[in-house]
């Protein structure tokens, strides 16, 4: 009965999404990047890893197939790093990176990718205003994504949101993480797992305007909603995280060190 009551409170489009999850404690949906739709992710210019992690972690981690990343107009020479991708549950061998010269080539290549069946995610990454991206262009992406059932994500750094046919629009930035236990003798605690502050600027058929604090769940390999628990002090999240330092000492001393216990 409890289950049914919950079901009635959420609206239909969310229900139809495969990766929909309902937290029993809080009756609010997790952000999802639904397959077959177009999503815009906005981030600040100097915070590029957050938006990327949001797009990859929610869009590609639980799907099979290659991930196409098309990049253009990025001011900084930031390379995607394979081991970091693997930590987000994406095999680096799945990545196909296309470097476009300008915004037109970016949109063109992205559209080509959205029309190709068999991809797990099409991610277009750009910085600043994206010339040529308007209602018509975004509508093309929507049609292509609907046909191939591929999620299409436009990751826009340091850009102003503009009118488009996208299904959702998110503002993503890094959030303070839940620090790990300090190793003995250390002055400061190590930073925790990836954490994101997410705001739904637009969500067709969903609760727009809401904010989330997402935290990486090491145990289940995905982001989970940790809104409200971020300031709860030292209470470790479920699936307690082993401190990196402890892990290292454990490896070095064969687990005999008290830090590894």
């Amino acid at each position: 009965m409890e289950h049914n009551k919950n079901m009635r409170t959420v609206s239909a489009p969310i229900l139809s999404s495969p990766s929909w999850r309902l937290r029993p404690s809080a009756q609010r949906p997790m952000p999802v990047l639904t397959a077959g739709q177009v999503h815009e992710v906005h981030g600040q210019g100097d915070d590029r890893a957050a938006g990327l992690a949001f797009a990859l972690g929610l869009g590609a981690a639980n799907r099979d197939g290659p991930v196409l990343v098309v990049r253009a107009g990025l001011r900084q020479p930031l390379a995607l790093y394979g081991e970091g991708l693997a930590a987000l549950g994406i095999d680096p061998a799945r990545l196909v990176l296309a470097q476009a010269r300008d915004a037109a080539a970016l949109l063109r290549a992205g559209l080509e990718g959205a029309r190709c069946p068999g991809l797990a995610l099409v991610l277009l990454e750009s910085e600043g205003p994206l010339k040529g991206y308007d209602l018509t262009a975004s509508r093309r992406f929507v049609l292509a994504a609907e046909r191939t059932q591929t999620p299409v994500v436009l990751l826009r750094h340091a850009a102003r949101p503009q009118a488009s046919a996208a299904h959702t629009r998110w503002q993503v930035s890094s959030a303070p993480s839940q620090p790990l236990e300090a190793p003995p003798g250390a002055q400061v605690r190590p930073p925790g797992l990836p954490a994101l502050a997410v705001e739904a600027l637009r969500w067709r058929g969903g609760p727009a305007g809401q904010t989330w604090h997402l935290q990486w769940d090491e145990q289940h390999g995905g982001f989970r909603d940790a809104t409200g628990t971020s300031d709860s002090g030292s209470a470790a999240p479920s699936g307690a995280v082993v401190s990196l330092a402890a892990l290292r000492t454990g490896a070095a001393t064969g687990g005999s060190s008290p830090a590894a216990a």
Binding site: R48, L80, Y81, E83, A87, R248
Partner: peptide, 11 residues
Amino acid sequence: SSALPRPLLLF
């Protein structure tokens, strides 16, 4: 696979 944390983006 590395047990040590590695970044997502590299300068």
